[in-house]
Structures are given as structure tokens and as C-alpha cells.
């Protein structure tokens, strides 16, 4: 397959994954309404770039750059995951690079679609948060939330030494939790195919201009609380049975989300004062 064909295939795959990700549940794309970024979200861009580079330059060749004669050809990919992913034994027994894996695991992903999904969420919620914190405080919060997610997901998991955990989703869940704390009344533009169909009669009745719009706008509070609710039951299962349902670390998502209120330590002083005193201008 030539390069052009590969590119077309990739683009089609992206569309297919977008559809798959948004057919049942809403996929957040951006926050809208009273959103204006007075600062360029450089750190959000940087985090997306670093996550992408780590995967493309370091992990992807082990997955997509080899002739797959057998699964064993994927062993190098496996080795990286099991060396730099997050496992409790690394801390308890002093293996690999120890507690530093909390950072390395945050920038690794299982496959390109894992990366793709996480970055969409980071893009949707991260920019406004960075605007409220400034880039460095935002970075510190992002890393802290990721640590809370990693740490909590192994501390509360009764089964020790199991699968390594990789991905930015714990940190991004923290960003979402912080977003809920600071901007509960914001509106999130989502891609949601079922919602799109359900919304058609409502739009028709309320005489909205674009009845067949593919976007659905949801209140941030509703979307984020629903996100937390979806993570709750699988997390309880992990806590009680020590299992990651379907290979997804829902507990890390939930704990990262719960780290959201920590944002009050990182948000800019003038904004914190406004938050506390409910004063503006």
C-alpha cells in the first residue's frame, strides 16, 4: 500500500473510531459559551505533543513498524509497557525505575486509539483550565492528578502486582474533575449520534435553525457527573474484586476525577478570590 493509500485508510479509521466513540456516549469536543482563552493554552498543546511523540517515536514502531509473523514480534512493545507502566511492585520492591514510573506511565498509551481518545478529552477540558491556572500551575496540577490516579488505583486495588497501567486518562480525569469544580455551568459541545437523533424532535419543536446539527451541547456539570457515575460501578468492582474491567482502569479514572478539588491549590490567586468571595469586576 502506498503512502497515499495508507493516509486514506488512516483517515477512514479515525472517522470510524470517532463514530464508535460517540455513537452511544457523547464525545466532548470543546467547551463553548462564555469561553475565551486569553492565554494561549501552550501547556495543553505541549502535553498533547509530548504524549503523541512518546507514542509515535517510541512505542508505535514496536506495534506498527514490524511484520507480524507472530504475537511474539510484539514483545518489545510489551517490554516497554511492563517496564515503564505503573505497577505497585515497582514501588514496593524497588524495580524498574521505581516511583518515576508514575510519570512515565502518564505519557504512554496502549495503542493509537487510546492516545487519540485521551487527547480529545484533554483538548476539550484542558484549555480552559490552563487559562485559569497559567501553564506551570496547570502542569503541576496535571501531574498531581495523574499521581493521585495511579497511586489510588493500586492502593485501593486488593490484588497486588497485576497488570501495568499506562495512559494519561487518570491525569485527564483530574482535569475534568477540576473543570467541574470551576466551571460547572459551562457548556460542552459533543459529538453524539444517538443524542443527535433524539434531539431532532426537540429542535424541531423549539424551532431551532439547525435541526440536523451533528453536535449536541450539554451542561458541563451533567456531562462530568455522568462521567463519574459511569466510572463508579466498575471502580467498586475493582476495589472489591481486584480486577480491571475489560482492561480499563476505571478506578484510576474515578480517583483522578476525585482529585479535581485540588485545583483550588493551583488556580490563580485573583480567580480563587473571586471563586471564594463570588466577586467579579
Amino acid at each position: 500500500m502506498d503512502a497515499f493509500g495508507a493516509l486514506i485508510s488512516f483517515a477512514l479509521a479515525v472517522l470510524l473510531v470517532l463514530f464508535e466513540m460517540s455513537v452511544i456516549y457523547p464525545l466532548p469536543l470543546s467547551d463553548i459559551g462564555a469561553v475565551r482563552y486569553r492565554t494561549m493554552p501552550t501547556m495543553t498543546y505541549l502535553l498533547i505533543i509530548v504524549n503523541a511523540l512518546v507514542f509515535i517515536a517510541w512505542q508505535a514502531p514496536d506495534i506498527y513498524g514490524v511484520e507480524l509473523d507472530s504475537y511474539r514480534d510484539l514483545q518489545p512493545y510489551m517490554d516497554k509497557i511492563w517496564t515503564y507502566g505503573y505497577r505497585d511492585v515497582f514501588m514496593t520492591e524497588g524495580l524498574s525505575i521505581g516511583a518515576f514510573t508514575t510519570f512515565t506511565s502518564m505519557f504512554m498509551h496502549g495503542d493509537i486509539w487510546h492516545l487519540f481518545g485521551n487527547m480529545i478529552f484533554l483538548w476539550a477540558f484542558g484549555r480552559r483550565l490552563e487559562d485559569a491556572c497559567g501553564p506551570w500551575r496547570y502542569l503541576l496540577f496535571y501531574l498531581t492528578a495523574g499521581m493521585v490516579a495511579n497511586l489510588g488505583s493500586v492502593v485501593l486495588n486488593p490484588v497486588q502486582g497485576e497488570l501495568p497501567s499506562v495512559g494519561a486518562s487518570g491525569a485527564i480525569a483530574g482535569v475534568m474533575g477540576a473543570f467541574l469544580v470551576l466551571f460547572p455551568r459551562a457548556r460542552i459541545q459533543c459529538l453524539w449520534f444517538i443524542g443527535m437523533i433524539l434531539w431532532i424532535p426537540y429542535r424541531a419543536i423549539t424551532r431551532q435553525e439547525n435541526i440536523f446539527s451533528r453536535y449536541i451541547v450539554l451542561p458541563a456539570g451533567l456531562f462530568l457527573l455522568y462521567f463519574a457515575f459511569r466510572e463508579l460501578l466498575p471502580s467498586l468492582e475493582t476495589i472489591t474484586q481486584g480486577d480491571n474491567v475489560g482492561g480499563v482502569n476505571n478506578l484510576a479514572h474515578l480517583l483522578g476525577f476525585a482529585a479535581g478539588p485540588l485545583i483550588l491549590l493551583f488556580v490563580r490567586k485573583d480567580l480563587l478570590v473571586r471563586f471564594i468571595t463570588r466577586r467579579a469586576v
Binding site: 504475537y71 510489551m78 509497557i81 498509551h109 487510546h114 501495568p164 499506562v166 482492561g247
Partner: peptide
Amino acid sequence: PVEPEIPSILDFIGEG
């Protein structure tokens, strides 16, 4: 770094 014990590829990988 201390090399950890790495299982076979056939084992399942959890994603976070």
C-alpha cells in the same frame, strides 16, 4: 534500573 519480570506477550495488558 532493575529489570522487572516481564510476562509473555500473550498476557493481557491493562490500560489506564
